[in-house]
Design a protein around this nucleic acid. Sequence first.
DNA 1: CACTACTTGAGAAAAGAATCACAAGGATAC
DNA 2: GTATCCTTGTGATTCTTTTCTCAAGTAGTG
Lengths: 241, 241
Amino acid sequence: MTDTPQPKRKHIPQATIKRLATYVQVLESLARDNVSVISSNPLAEACGVQGSQIRKDLAYFGEFGIRGVGYQVNHLISSITSSLGVDHEWPMVLVGVGNLGKAMINHIGFHAHGFHIKAIFDCDPFKIGDKVHGLEVFPTQEIKPIVEKLGVEIAVITTPPERAQRAASYLAEGGIKGILNFAPARIKVPDHVHVEYVDFFRHMYNLIFNLTQDPKEAKPERDAMDIKKHLFDSDPGQIRD
Amino acid sequence: MTDTPQPKRKHIPQATIKRLATYVQVLESLARDNVSVISSNPLAEACGVQGSQIRKDLAYFGEFGIRGVGYQVNHLISSITSSLGVDHEWPMVLVGVGNLGKAMINHIGFHAHGFHIKAIFDCDPFKIGDKVHGLEVFPTQEIKPIVEKLGVEIAVITTPPERAQRAASYLAEGGIKGILNFAPARIKVPDHVHVEYVDFFRHMYNLIFNLTQDPKEAKPERDAMDIKKHLFDSDPGQIRD
DNA sequence: CACTACTTGAGAAAAGAATCACAAGGATAC
DNA sequence: GTATCCTTGTGATTCTTTTCTCAAGTAGTG
């Protein structure tokens, strides 16, 4: 009926979405290197997954490849980004103008991918009125009216853990639908608000656990030449997370 | 035989390790509130998982609870952190002294949890010699000798994507065993080096996908009072990543 | 135009992870 | 000391996700 590749809308695993973000990252790198077509296996190797995994992930959204050929890099990028809804601008607000908050406000890649921070908030009276990257810092009490006025749906929390819940509550009251939470604290929000936790410690714990508990990888020794030899043919590691 | 709770060393899922980090986060918050004992179900609710999930996760490492009572908060924290190997200091180095790098260097929670950045590197000649939080910026060429001299095993990469691979190669040559990579790029390292990717975009993509594709949650309208009512009894969301 | 070489897409099978259900163990009250 | 109550730890079950396998489809070659 339709000329678009009919999407098989059943339940799509969260893991698939996560991997799609990585595929885009690698595909964009390929595009910069002027690679125009790639098949699933080499792409999979660059992403640290199986080829069949990529094909299955993409199949949730439609048919983007050409049998016998592979995938057109640019077409695949736009197919994935539009499938996910990240092919256009998303205005955002940020709460917590500390070191990390400022880093996010100035993050060029973030802005380049359409994530535009439109307003920033902090509860520290000494910061109110400061300008960061051209944006004025507003008090957290004004989150609700400003979010409502701007009609923003996504927010970033970069406060200390003890202030994350208050920020989240203000944001929810203002009608925010999604929160990217960098604060090392769990927050409670209404059911319709989706929270993504960016937890450095989780990654660090994982790193250290794998370091200390993987005696299977404890190779005796390895000199610089040996490392260089392995540098470009080793497994870049599973995506998961 | 031993008086320590015998660990059942079989394969431990990565997902379990990730959750343990969250358990510690919530337990530390409980400890601050002077909660001394907690049973699996209330802890599970605060973490956004099932009680049986917590019990199973802990069972991989031993028996830390008291039947009929629950878990001692402080004891459980130290049991988990020592099981994971995060109960002592970990010296680290950092490559890429930009906005994000500086934020990590100044991150108090990071330092408080034993992750101590001992040396920092950048390839920008104008940054070499600068002091950040008391640390002098060294050129990336010196990564190998300095890492070897310090005997550091863990590194953080906060460079732009195009410089992440070079940083990773230098680090691997210096004998680094684990890398926390904030750069939005996949890196290739020898098999024995473990890489953890901290990918904001992955979280953003997930957030937006859930926003746009979850029409099941599209409640008609909801005023502020309604939101407040739900604020403290709603599901804080699954841990997953 | 038939034939070969490749690659996708998808059903089937395998592996893995979360949940359930309950026996075992410990604390407390009487 | 005995009975009752409560919560853990774990085997069994269910559910989810990944991997395997191969038919279907496309481009290029002689």
